[in-house]
Design a protein around this nucleic acid. Sequence first.
DNA 1: CGTGATTTTCAGAATATTCTGAAAGCATCG
DNA 2: CGATGCTTTCAGAATATTCTGAAAATCACG
Lengths: 201, 201
Amino acid sequence: MRRDTIEHGSAGRGASGTAPRRVLLEAQDRFISAWGQMGATWGISRTMAEIHALLFITGESLCTDDVMERLHISRGNASMSLRALCDWGIVTRAHRRGDRKEYFEAEQDAWSILQKVVRERIKREINPLLALLYEIRELTGVPGETERAREADTAVSAHNTRMDAMLQLLRVTDELGNKFTAASGEQVRRTADMLAGLEDA
Amino acid sequence: MRRDTIEHGSAGRGASGTAPRRVLLEAQDRFISAWGQMGATWGISRTMAEIHALLFITGESLCTDDVMERLHISRGNASMSLRALCDWGIVTRAHRRGDRKEYFEAEQDAWSILQKVVRERIKREINPLLALLYEIRELTGVPGETERAREADTAVSAHNTRMDAMLQLLRVTDELGNKFTAASGEQVRRTADMLAGLEDA
DNA sequence: CGTGATTTTCAGAATATTCTGAAAGCATCG
DNA sequence: CGATGCTTTCAGAATATTCTGAAAATCACG
């Protein structure tokens, strides 16, 4: 994919912003790239991650055209990606009085972003997987019952052991995720500070 | 992508296996599909995840041809994917005396698989991202120093606050991941059992 | 309603990823 | 060595994903 770096410089005209401003724009661009890259490796479309990065790092509410211009993407792409970000709950729609346009802003609390992403991924990916695995597990005997006939079959019983181990792992992961996403901002903040402290020790 | 379900049935000939065996094969196939699907949504190629699922759920050591046949994939694909799984540390090469072929087997402990995947993803994805973000953070002032000129600039200082929040989140995540991947099997098992218990409460 | 501004949708184009198969590489054995 | 059996590599094909742009839908307001 083509990814051109934007020149926020003095190229051309002299009045293109003060030095701190140029540095800020450059830092934003690099943040956007880094975030986009990360999104891509975790199964989120790069553009979606970039739009999110843009809204987060500028902290402003931007309209579709702002996003299109800054990221060089089409209207359709911007529209669809923004909607998806809203569905994930990490971007919200906003309006300005006397302006028909719709503006978007990103959740500004980093931990809250993570909570929302985790919540959504559990709901969309872990839970359906768990349901499937339970279904598959039952093909080879109900876990509770001790089925004589099947317990005798070494292959089946080994299979069941493996399935049960995987199910436990997913259940625990699911539960841990639920605990985390249910935590209040205060709880998360205190825990994070504690863990951040540990790391220096 | 085309994904055909394999018929492990009595179709055609009568001697195609006992009933438990057919059920086992069906359960394996469905596990493989589910696992492949999950891999795909988490940024791992579907085939790689499927091969891993196959090796895990059968518990056997299989050679390249076994994998090719069961999953209907080409030799090249099988070879590359198996190598990648070995690089991730969740599949190991094995040999049988009097046989030149190479066999592969999957780590059988589910928690250990997760530990290895987490370790690798931290190393490959979180750490480089952290490095990038530190670099970007320094464009707008060194965190420690109180730079008068820049502190005055509201936009820059808000930017720095956001960057610092994101950096803290990633540092804590990284550290948590390291703690988890460093835990012994015994520690993990005890913790998991504890958490599994909590969930029923 | 009618008009103009804005947003959404979606077929087809562009791009990126994954897969194949045949050729090249590498051991091991006779 | 040279043949044999197995593995790896990689260019090009197949497939999946993402993006575009223009048409259709929606909306706000007179």
